[in-house]
Design a protein around this nucleic acid. Structure first.
Lengths: 185, 185
DNA sequence: ACACAACGTTCGCGTTGACGAACGCTCCCG
DNA sequence: CGGGAGCGTTCGTCAACGCGAACGTTGTGT
């Protein structure tokens, strides 16, 4: 079959990497997963287009989440100081979102640091469907959540809500900041 | 083939759900994805074991992350007040981790609220491999990161590091709190 | 040195996924 | 009423995935 850009080579590398990390031989893993070792051999050499059943069995035998075999790995250690990092300014100047971590390609979650001042009610239009946002309030006080039913949060409080609904972030006191995780389910 | 517990029915439901949410007909989606509509029809009726290529093409055409088709959906809105939620106490009483969000099955990330007081150096043994931790310091000051190379963080700072390396969380001033995301890559 | 075991690869073969064509169905328009 | 477009399903064909068996290679022990 012609390749459509699917991560067959990524799968190959992931299988090899995970298998060696666990310390299993190709034969051993094949036996545990109930897969012919010839099949596994071909998959690790990126010659083949595995079925979901097969790949699923391997992910179970390796005890890694399924998506770990399909998506490429990501970097290791990273530090972003307060004030550094790419900032996303709102139409209101009182609101700044700093992107702390994203995971391309086919991002699964982004982490933002939000700082906001009172007065600027920040209404977010619905994002692409399948997004869930998690917010932990760090300091100050804010009204956060779905627009038709927001919640008043104080430091340490947590809320999560669907990102494909309209939602708001309204700081109630100066110096309000929060950690926001925007996640693709 | 005999089913190995693979999420074929989950895939079927996910395909149907995502397709209808986007508002595409079965024929239309098949055309856009470059997949025979007969194939797609069989997949949505859970009779079949798609190859990765096929499912990948569908995920691209639907513009959803691949794993969204393989894993079942999760709940919607949730609030946890500061002090509520399941707490994970350390051997040192000065350290409390509150679990805010986890995502079974085959968890991909957990979100914790950490509160710690000075004096209790919290050394974490390496977790299962493939884990990455993200920390955003909310208040106070702390020494966080890989044990052999920790970083001094102040409020708003961010760090991420591999969870399969030994790492520490040492509060330097009273009332230190942080948001910790423990993530399976 | 030889036998043996374990590893990873390669080689036919049966099964099955993916395809295009044809089908029944509903709806819409002339 | 009849034709046509669109929908989702079913049917036959071909390619390819997954399998077991056999192979060459490496390392071990008696």
């Amino acid at each position: 079959m012609e390749h459509r850009g699917a991560p067959l080579d990524v799968i190959a590398r992931s299988l090899r990497r995970e298998r060696e990390r666990v310390g299993l031989s190709l034969s051993e893993l094949a036996k545990r997963a109930g897969v012919a070792k010839s099949t596994l051999s071909q998959l690790e050499s990126a010659s083949g287009n595995p079925s979901v059943e097969t790949l699923w069995a391997l992910s179970v035998a390796l005890d890694v989440p399924f998506s770990r075999l399909v998506e490429p790995p990501r970097p290791r250690v990273q530090v972003i100081r307060a004030g550094e990092g790419p900032a996303v300014y709102s139409e209101h100047a009182e609101y700044v979102a700093t992107l702390l971590a994203s995971c391309p390609p086919h991002a699964r979650r982004d982490i933002y640091l939000i700082t906001a001042e009172p007065g600027g009610k920040r209404e977010s239009l619905p994002h692409s469907p399948g997004v869930v946002e998690h917010v932990v309030l760090c300091s100050g006080e804010a009204l956060i959540g779905p627009t038709e039913d927001p919640v008043r949060l104080t430091p340490g409080d947590y809320i999560s809500y669907p990102g494909d609904l309209p939602h708001i972030f309204e700081a109630l006191v100066p110096g309000t900041s929060a950690c926001l995780i925007s996640e693709h389910v």
